[in-house]
Write a protein that binds this DNA or RNA. Sequence first.
DNA 1: CATCCATGTTGACAGCGACAACATGCAATG
DNA 2: CATTGCATGTTGTCGCTGTCAACATGGATG
Lengths: 222, 222
Amino acid sequence: MATRGKQARTQKPSDAPEEKARYHHGDLRQALVDAAVTLITEEGFGALTLREVARRAGVTHAAPYRHFADKEALLEAVAQQGFRAMAQEMRERMAKAPAGPLEQLSAAGVAYVLFAVRHPPHFRVMFGPHFTRPLQPDASDEGTNAFALLVRCIEAGQAAGVLRPGESRRLTLAAWSMVHGLASLFVDRQLQEAGQGAEAAEALAVVQTRLLLEGLTRPGPG
Amino acid sequence: MATRGKQARTQKPSDAPEEKARYHHGDLRQALVDAAVTLITEEGFGALTLREVARRAGVTHAAPYRHFADKEALLEAVAQQGFRAMAQEMRERMAKAPAGPLEQLSAAGVAYVLFAVRHPPHFRVMFGPHFTRPLQPDASDEGTNAFALLVRCIEAGQAAGVLRPGESRRLTLAAWSMVHGLASLFVDRQLQEAGQGAEAAEALAVVQTRLLLEGLTRPGPG
DNA sequence: CATCCATGTTGACAGCGACAACATGCAATG
DNA sequence: CATTGCATGTTGTCGCTGTCAACATGGATG
């Protein structure tokens, strides 16, 4: 959405095989991705049609096939964009938070939930039932992997002695399940009572993150 | 799936307006629901077609419209069946668990995750992005509401003094988020490393439930 | 036995995903 | 600058789908 802009025009095509979209339309590939997201936002998944996406991008119904093998490939691009954006938002919020491991973990979790609330189409495509083939490895590599960020927070907290020791993946899975569940419930409109805005989601995420850290059981005497 | 069987045949149609399916086919309405679930399981959501569902039920392509207003109405029936089945499985597992509030809560959570793992199509339809209109109230009323079961467990635990006091809905949301997130991650194949079987899911759900109760932070001295 | 109406069928239409054949225009090459 | 190649976009087509209207059928009711 923000990190777009035209690419360098003097580059050889063989240098950047992924960004080959600047001929007639300018950047049809990205325009199609954006149109798909807008369409899902406005009309829902049932209205997501390759032909309508093409219409909104101002091209004919077969033009998308020059950039995507099929409808699913377009959704894969949406998912990849989503994974990148989510990881970036998490990193940004963590940078603004205090340096402590618990604060970093909380920031990561809140950012995870907030991304889902602010970008429901991306979140749903990323984790929804829309893919028949597994997502390309690029969608889960280092720079775009939110899970890796959680793992690092957890291990830092264990190293600092503020988190329960043991297999870090267990703790990570607990944190991931919590924020993913909260995000899913928001996106799937199961939490209407709690309010729909990003502020409500943020407040809820903060509270729930703390609950996860401290546990549901009654705190010991003292 | 199991609780089917032909309904009483001597009943007046006006007495049971919901179960009006036993004329030519016998019970086409339920057969269509079952065929839809099977089709999703075998071929994925992309292959879910009213015409294919009709084919598998042995009727022509327009027959489903005598039982469902449109494709979405068929999915609504799948979701309702799912909500009922999930609540029932949770009740059954809670009945087999010890009577303590924590044990009951754990049983409810584990059953929630297990339902999702064992019935992915139902779970995805129930919480997925497939509906343009909100689910019928029947899908979220008493007998079919898993959330209500969680609330009762939480409040019982608070009354017994073993759970943190305060707004019960906050604790309930934490528990719901955890199990819903775990279930979603399983169903959406984000947890391949942890194994795919129901046993792996059950073990993981038990561990994660305990982690939620006790918290991620290091237990105090003593 | 006669009738009615819920249930199932047939036929049709517009829209969709996907492919093949064709048209266009940038850009590298001379 | 003119030529040419190939990435990009267009047109036309196919089978399939969701949905509707008109029609056929046969159990239940009298």
